[in-house]
């Protein structure tokens, strides 16, 4: 449905704008403006979403946190898509032992809960943004890989791929120019949906205290800080939670909408 796409695009745009313009929009500094005198203030002027235990403005922290969340979501998903597409296309194209190996690896990855795997990687690398990007970028490529492999399998028997081989093009060239452009659509859908889950995973890891290190605001560690304030200052937990919800919903709707729009049954490709 068109609605999914439009509404998803709207939500995602709001979040992206918030992240880009955080410096302009935020009424306070997310870290420096700690003021114990104004801690746990309820929503109202000038703190529209209230303040946390250290008196920091929740709205400002959410705006700056959006930068972290989006950056983690997008960058880790780019890593995932690249790994998944490379493995999937090459496995489908070459087949044989390499295909068996990639298939096995994919199945193992699907069998391990990705969050647990990411947790293990974080434990080795230590907390922080770079290790978070690596951990989330290495653990969520299996669906991309599967889709890429399946589409490649059906494409490689199409005669335009045979024709390119017959014309002397190298396998690398064929995968890049003949196959990849034809599967970019489904990969885009999977990637968009993946951003949503990466945002969620970032929040979970930060919530567990091994993601983004405080005081840098991220929606996950804001929730951690707010855990003890649930009774006295619920807004400190509700607004970051809402931000996560809106972002993940936005990306999921956008992904669904893209899938519908790219669905070959919805288009008239042949005359």
């Amino acid at each position: 449905m068109r609605f999914n796409f439009v509404f998803g695009l709207f939500l995602v745009s709001v979040v992206v704008l918030a992240a880009l313009l955080a410096g302009l929009l935020a009424p306070f500094h997310p870290i420096m403006d700690a003021d114990l005198m104004s801690s746990e203030l309820p929503p109202g002027a000038p703190h529209w979403m209230g303040t946390d235990a250290q008196g920091r403005d929740v709205l400002s922290r959410i705006l700056y946190g959006a930068r972290v969340s989006l950056m983690v979501g997008v960058v880790s998903q780019i890593i995932n898509s690249t790994i998944g597409a490379a493995l999937g296309i090459s496995a489908g194209y070459f087949g044989g032992v390499w295909d068996d190996f990639v298939n096995g690896l994919t199945n193992v990855m699907l069998a391990i809960p990705s969050l647990v795997f990411a947790l293990a990687i974080m434990a080795v690398l230590g907390p922080g943004l770079p290790s978070l990007l690596i951990a989330l970028g290495l653990t969520n490529w299996s669906w991309t890989c599967r889709i890429a492999r399946g589409s490649t399998l059906s494409l490689k028997s199409q005669s335009f791929v045979l024709a390119a081989k017959a014309a002397g093009f190298s396998d690398w060239n064929i995968m890049r120019t003949q196959i990849l452009p034809n599967i970019v659509g489904p990969l885009l859908v999977i990637g968009t949906l993946g951003i949503g889950s990466a945002v969620l995973a970032e929040a979970a890891l930060s919530f567990l205290g091994i993601g983004i290190r405080p005081p840098t605001p991220s929606w996950g560690n804001m929730l951690t800080d707010a855990r003890e304030l649930l009774r006295t200052a619920p807004w400190a937990a509700i607004f970051p939670g809402l931000a996560i919800f809106v972002t993940v919903l936005g990306f999921n709707l956008l992904g669904d909408g893209l899938r519908d729009m790219l669905d070959p049954h919805m288009r008239t490709r042949r005359e």
């Binding site: 199409q158 005669s159 335009f160 024709a163 390119a164 120019t177 003949q178 452009p181 034809n182 042949r270």
Partner: peptide
Amino acid sequence: DPFASLNPRI
């Protein structure tokens, strides 16, 4: 098959 023998994206 004249439909499968040309890459639709090129």
